Computed example of a mutant assay.
Amino acid sequence: MNKVALITGASDGLGKAMAISCAKKEMDLLLVALPETGLPELAEFIEGSFEVRTHYLELDLTEMENCQFLINYVIEKELPVSFLINNAGIGGSVGFVEENFALFDKMILLNVRALTFITHGLIPILEKQEKSYILNVSSMIIHFEGPFKQVYGATKSYIYFFSKCLDYELVGKNIQVSILCPAGVNSNIKMRLLHNNCSSFQKLTILSPEEVADYALEKCLAGKREIIPGKFIRFLFFISKLMPNSLRRYLTLINNKNLIKSNKIIKEPEPAMESNVEVL
């Protein structure tokens, strides 16, 4: 039996690219995404293109009962999940006072609670496998505090800290915990429009979902704990460590203001819950 990869937020963007990358590595799949986001069609495409079996569940993971349903499904189907990719999340560049709290509530429920609950529930399954991996999607934003990213950045910082601590806690067991910290990803049409209206410099940091997914899986399976895709991005991150904090904060402010301006230009709709990462 093939190894099974469970991927949340799998219907589009980075999650979809992760699913295809795992299928190329002959992993069976359990894909999870919101209803009516094209998940059945994706599952059919993958099964028709690769010699893997694909399960899928259309669930809103901000609902606790759906997280429990996912865990129960894995247990009842006796799926040997050995790769958990916690990709589902909500992003956005918004003013804290101006934005409706409902958006922040969803961010916390999906980015923090769902990820933590699903990980907790599936560790007993992961422990049964010969070698297992957890790949949690954080963001480069955790290293660059600034306005308009307060709740989003906080949830991604939680994922980073949680992943680091959990990996230490699981030392000696067969489970490796890795963190993916991308900068910009053209994860869907909305994000491509957003990025097209960003500065020329910001555009240099943007990668395709396929580039990020392939690199992330390669490095995760090779034992890398913290994964930053993109040579140019890794160079910028190194340089940023040498900058004075005041300069880092100023550049972050300009970057985030550009994102807000770009949002207004494209008249951005309600952020999609499967769109996990954006420009730093």
Rank of each mutant, 00 (worst) to 15 (best):
T8P: 10
A10R: 07
G13C: 11
A17M: 06
A19R: 03
A19H: 03
S21G: 04
C22Q: 14
A23D: 08
K24M: 01
L29G: 15
L31K: 07
E41K: 08
E58W: 05
L59S: 04
M64F: 03
E65M: 06
F69A: 07
N72E: 13
N72L: 06
V74C: 09
E78N: 10
N86Y: 10
N86R: 06
G89M: 06
G92S: 03
F96L: 07
K106Y: 06
P124R: 02
E127F: 10
K131F: 09
F144L: 07
F148H: 13
V151A: 01
Y152F: 04
A154I: 06
K156T: 11
Y158S: 12
V171Q: 14
V171P: 01
L180I: 01
C181L: 10
P182I: 09
G184N: 09
N186R: 03
S187N: 15
L207C: 01
D214T: 07
L217D: 09
G223Y: 01
R225F: 01
E226N: 04
I227R: 06
K231N: 11
K231R: 12
F235Q: 08
F235P: 07
L236W: 09
F238W: 03
M243Y: 15
P244Y: 13
N245Q: 13
L251Q: 13
L251K: 11
T252G: 11
N258H: 08
K264T: 03
I265H: 13
I266K: 14
E270S: 11
M273G: 15
V277F: 05
L280H: 12
L280I: 10
